[in-house]
Design a binder for these strands. Structure first.
Lengths: 125, 125
DNA sequence: CCCTTGGTTCGACGTATGTCAACATAGGCG
DNA sequence: CGCCTATGTTGACATACGTCGAACCAAGGG
């Protein structure tokens, strides 16, 4: 890793807790690696169907949802599974099989990290 | 060709879909329309080159940058222009010709809107 | 054991996307 | 005026992406 000294973050403990990704994009020009990493997440949310699925999971009670409960997004069931897989590969969702059904859950740190990335430390909350 | 070179933004539908975008995606499942609108912005940031260009503009002094200053992202100059156009169509950037050079500027409300969308009202800044 | 329900994987198809080279336009300068 | 630099546009191409139908695993219930 040829990474130079990290940015003078005022609170490094808070930053490392939820931001494994990149600095705020208003802070410094992104490097190629940072851009690749961050773009992967944005791209995962760049599809209407995936965004609906992600929102459905994120807004579901308990932070997790069965596939059977969110698959009403206007596409076939294999397509739903395909998109959920993409979201999982992007690190935005986690899946767990519990008996007959499969439950998807949002990775909370991802939302905070992307929020910081966009609005800066003010999104830390 | 078919259009005169008067207006820089021939499609108002894209530009106006920025600020009053959507509720936080953890609040309620997105509707199809909300997902389309929000996904358009995420998709614009879903490319590494575009993300680097956007970050370069956002982090530049004065909040604006000349094309000649940010076009070092590893792709040809036409490709840079192409991506900047995409970002402008997505409502994330605004361009202004000042003499010989063209300057791009970030739409601040967009960052706040997307931040809210991800992390909820805590990103209101 | 088979059969029904829930979910994923596979193969294929059409379309969108990113990229470049070549050309076109805008503005400054000798 | 013509040339030269700075951006944008066009056309073409390879690749990736979203979508579906069909086939394939997993878990329960008769």
């Amino acid at each position: 890793m040829s990474n130079t000294k990290a940015l003078p973050v005022p609170d490094p403990a808070d930053a490392r807790a939820v931001a494994p990704c990149c600095p705020p994009l208003t802070e410094r020009p992104f490097t190629a690696e940072e851009a690749e990493t961050a773009a992967r997440m944005f791209k995962a949310l760049g599809d209407p169907v995936r965004l609906r699925l992600f929102s459905a999971v994120a807004s579901h009670e308990g932070g997790e949802a069965c596939v059977c409960d969110i698959s009403d997004v206007g596409v076939s069931q294999p397509t739903v599974s395909h998109h959920l897989k993409k979201l999982k590969e992007a690190g935005l969702l986690a899946s767990e099989r519990r008996g007959t059904w499969v439950y998807y859950r949002v990775e909370p740190s991802v939302l905070a990290a992307m929020g910081k990335l966009l609005t800066g430390p003010s999104a830390a909350a």
